[in-house]
Amino acid sequence: MSSASTEPKTCHQCKQTISGGKCVQAMGVNWHEDHFLCQDCKSKLIGTQFMEVGGVPYCQKCYLSKHADRCKGCSKPIADKAIVALDAKWHQMCFRCSKCEKPIMKDQSFQVDGGKPHCVKC
C-alpha cells in the first residue's frame, strides 16, 4: 500500500518551504510567487508568457532581445514563425526576391544566385 507524500513544497529558487503563500508550479518545479521572476529584468512572470532557456525563466521581451533567433533579412528577433532557407532564418515578410523585392512565400519555389534568393519569375 502506497501513501501520498506529505513533504512540504520548497521553492526552486530559494529552497525554502512554501507555506501560507501561493505556490507557483512552472517548468516542472515549485516557486514562491515572489520568486518566479524574469532572470534579467526581474519582472513577475505569473499570468504572462515566458520562455525557458537552460532551466531559467525569461519574460518575452528579455527572451526576444537576448535569446531569440535573428532574421537574416532585418536582423531583428523572430518572435513567431520563421522561414528557414539558405542556412538562415527569416521573418516571413523579409524573405524576398533580391531583384523584384516581392516576398517569396513559404510554399513558393525560388532560385539562388550569388547566395541571394530570386523568385522564379526573375
Rank of each mutant, 00 (worst) to 15 (best):
S19W: 07
A68M: 10
M1A: 10
S19L: 15
L37F: 09
C59R: 00
S109T: 12
G114T: 06
F36T: 00
C41V: 04
F36D: 00
A4H: 07
M105E: 15
S3A: 13
K116G: 00
H12S: 07
G28R: 09
Q39S: 10
D69T: 15
P77T: 14
C122N: 05
A85S: 11
S43G: 12
I78K: 00
G28P: 01
G20C: 04
T17K: 15
L86C: 02
A79W: 03
K81H: 09
L86P: 07
V53Y: 02
S5E: 12
C38K: 01
G115F: 03
M105Q: 15
Q60D: 08
C38M: 09
I104F: 03
K44Y: 03
W90T: 04
G115I: 05
H67M: 14
C119H: 00
R96Q: 12
C11W: 01
W31H: 01
F95E: 03
P57W: 13
C122E: 03
L86R: 04
Q13L: 04
D80T: 10
W90G: 03
D34S: 07
W31N: 04
E7C: 08
T10L: 08
K76Q: 14
R96C: 12
S3P: 01
Q111C: 11
Y63S: 03
D87R: 10
C97Y: 03
V53I: 11
C100E: 09
A82L: 08
F95S: 01
C38Y: 02
K22N: 15
V120Q: 06
C122P: 01
Q25A: 13
K66Q: 13
V112W: 04
K121E: 15
R70E: 11
A88D: 08
H32F: 05
Q92V: 11
Q60H: 12
A85D: 08
K106E: 15
T17S: 10
C97D: 08
A68V: 06
K66R: 11
A79G: 08
D87I: 05
P57D: 15
A68I: 04
P103Y: 06
C23V: 15
M93R: 12
G21R: 13
V112E: 10
K99A: 11
C23D: 09
H118P: 03
Q13N: 14
T48D: 09
P8A: 15
Q16Y: 06
G20L: 12
F50T: 00
G21K: 13
G73A: 15
K102D: 03
C62S: 02
V53C: 09
K66P: 05
D87G: 02
A68F: 03
C38D: 01
V24T: 05
F95M: 03
M51R: 02
T48C: 05
S65T: 07
K66A: 12
Q39A: 13
